[in-house]
């Protein structure tokens, strides 16, 4: 029962990551390996805030914002196009600096936890679109393989920066609420409830976003027919940035959720991200419900195998991908580009 609980809560996290990966791949064709880094950065940044320090990640935000502002600003100048220049500079220069100033001014350790979490999101989520702008937008038209190689590079850079920012020690953050609920013989850790509840809320929210809001529909349209979407004035750049924003939000929030359950190191994100990736593959990098179900399967398999054969836990989880790939290769007919 405890194993099941554990499995479901890690499964919920993997589900969020798998959804982010499917989303990014279907809109931009990027296989986003660094998704796990958002998880690690999320937990570690929150931990620094709780320790009353100014998280170094805010300087990453400032630096990347400056790069984006310069690159995009020069492009605007070349096209003699000043429209939207204000918001470009505002979001990429003024916002990060204002946030850095705010973090220096307040004593973050004493803030209520909800505010600390909000600050964590405020620092890290804008990194998503910036990463898209710097690493992927210039090569958006190239093959999936080139995009994948860029992903490897981004992953290595972020992991390296993680070591610089946070050091080699692992951290745990304070739980949202202490204690556990007891139903008869079964006791459920409150943080587990938080994890599962928040993940479900996120999934429902995402589903509503994609079926109800025009922006969500625009993202779906971009994945169904990129050239058609372009003709509607849905720019691939805007779609890419919005996608990375959502993915960053999912990743950072996952990190905040598991911070109290697992010890997170600067490089923990990679393994977590890979497990999300296994789940996404189960969904064929295309189906959201299958990916979410796959994530729960991965979580359960991991928690039971860590009990029965802990040395082989990772092996078992990643072995799961082999029968899945076999099954998919037998069942799917290769679809050429339409028309």
């Amino acid at each position: 029962m405890i194993l099941g609980q554990d499995g479901v809560s890690s499964g919920a996290i993997y589900a969020l990551l798998a959804l982010a990966l499917v989303l990014i791949f279907s809109v931009t064709r990027v296989i986003f390996i660094p998704q796990g880094e958002f998880v690690a950065f999320g937990a570690l940044t929150l931990a620094m805030l709780q320790a009353g320090k100014v998280p170094a990640t805010v300087w990453l935000l400032v630096a990347m914002g400056a790069v984006v502002a310069v690159v995009d600003g020069l492009a605007r100048l070349r096209d003699r196009d000043t429209e939207g220049l204000g918001s470009l500079l505002g979001w990429n220069l003024a916002y990060p600096l204002a946030l850095a100033a705010l973090l220096h001014a307040v004593e973050s350790g004493g803030l209520p936890m909800a505010l600390q979490i909000l600050l964590t999101l405020a620092i890290l989520v804008p990194l998503g679109p910036m990463i898209y702008r710097i690493a992927y937008q210039p090569i958006a038209e190239t093959s999936v393989l080139v995009l994948l190689i860029a992903s490897v590079a981004v992953h290595l850079i972020l992991t390296g920066l993680g070591l610089v920012f946070f050091g080699a020690e692992g951290v745990r953050t304070a739980p949202f609420s202490e204690g556990s609920l007891t139903f008869g013989e079964v006791s459920i850790n409150l943080q587990t409830l938080w994890v599962v509840g928040c993940s479900l809320a996120f999934i429902v929210g995402l589903a509503a976003f994609f079926t109800r809001s025009l922006y969500g529909k625009a993202l779906r349209a971009t994945s169904v027919n990129p050239s058609g979407a372009k003709l509607m004035g849905i720019s691939p750049v805007v779609a890419g940035k919005l996608t990375f924003l959502l993915a960053a939000l999912l990743g950072v929030f996952s990190g905040v959720l598991i911070g109290p359950i697992t010890t997170i190191y600067y490089d923990t994100g990679f393994l977590i991200g890979l497990k999300g990736f296994v789940a996404a593959i189960i969904g064929g990098l295309a189906s959201y419900p299958l990916a979410a179900a796959g994530a729960v399967l991965v979580g359960l398999l991991e928690s039971f195998s860590s009990f029965w054969a802990s040395a082989f836990k990772e092996v078992l989880v990643f072995t799961l991908i082999i029968p899945v790939l076999l099954w998919r290769s037998f069942n799917s007919h290769h679809v050429e580009d339409e028309e």
Binding site: L214, K217, A218, R220, A221, V224, N225, S227, G228, A229, L231, M232, G233, I234, E338, E339
Partner: peptide, 28 residues
Amino acid sequence: ALVPEKRDLFGEMSVEDNLLLGAFQRFR
């Protein structure tokens, strides 16, 4: 506005959603 030769519709989406997306920029 351009209606391309291939039409480039959003195949798996409903007629209504296709039309709504045609107004994406106006909505924005």
